[in-house]
């Protein structure tokens, strides 16, 4: 048995410890927002956060996450619990097309803005170039990150003032 904390909830899984986190999330935990794209950490569709850091869940064995915090796209926000500013920006800028890569793109963008609240274009290139989008939504992703960064800065400003 391996214990994982997924989106704040502790769960036990009876799996081969070498199984990549991706398949445990999708098949055992029923969280299908995290996608399989390449299986070799080349496309980023499987990006989740491990203790807040973006990782490629398709190549990270589940044993490496035992007892630690995994966050998936389902834990970032939704219409019921409230959308994250990155998700709001993705809607405002109409970023997704086919949408298959976008969970991974959003996870990478959220992680970027967590460590770097005001990323430059070069910062965005560095943080986001591991995530492939075959629909070519890159210009809108770039814009979305900037829109989200501004919204988050405004929130912080509001919080400081309030």
């Amino acid at each position: 048995m391996i214990t994982l904390t997924i989106n704040g909830k502790s769960q036990e899984f009876d799996v081969d410890p070498a199984t990549p986190i991706l398949w445990v999330l999708r098949e055992q935990a029923g969280l299908t927002g995290t996608k399989y794209g390449c299986g070799i950490a080349m496309c980023g569709a499987c990006t989740v956060h491990l203790n807040g850091m973006p990782i490629r869940s398709c190549v990270t064995p589940v044993q490496a996450a035992a007892g630690q915090e995994i966050t998936t796209i389902e834990g970032i926000g939704n219409a019921a619990t409230g959308l994250h500013p990155v998700q709001q920006a993705w809607i405002a800028e109409q970023v997704p097309q086919c949408g298959y890569c976008q969970s991974g793109q959003i996870m990478a963008a959220v992680a970027l803005l967590h460590t770097n609240p005001a990323p430059t274009d070069a910062d965005i290139d560095t943080a986001m170039s591991g995530n492939i989008c075959r629909c070519g939504t890159y210009p809108r992703i770039r814009k979305g990150i900037k829109v989200a960064a501004a919204a988050m800065a405004a929130q912080r400003g509001g919080a400081n003032n309030g």
Binding site: L31, K35, E74, A79, Q87, V95
Partner: peptide
């Protein structure tokens, strides 16, 4: 129409 479901992981693809 399809964008909200594609930002929170709820869109169901064949894979899902």
């Amino acid at each position: 129409f399809d964008i909200p479901a594609k930002v929170d992981g709820s869109a169901v693809f064949g894979m899902d």
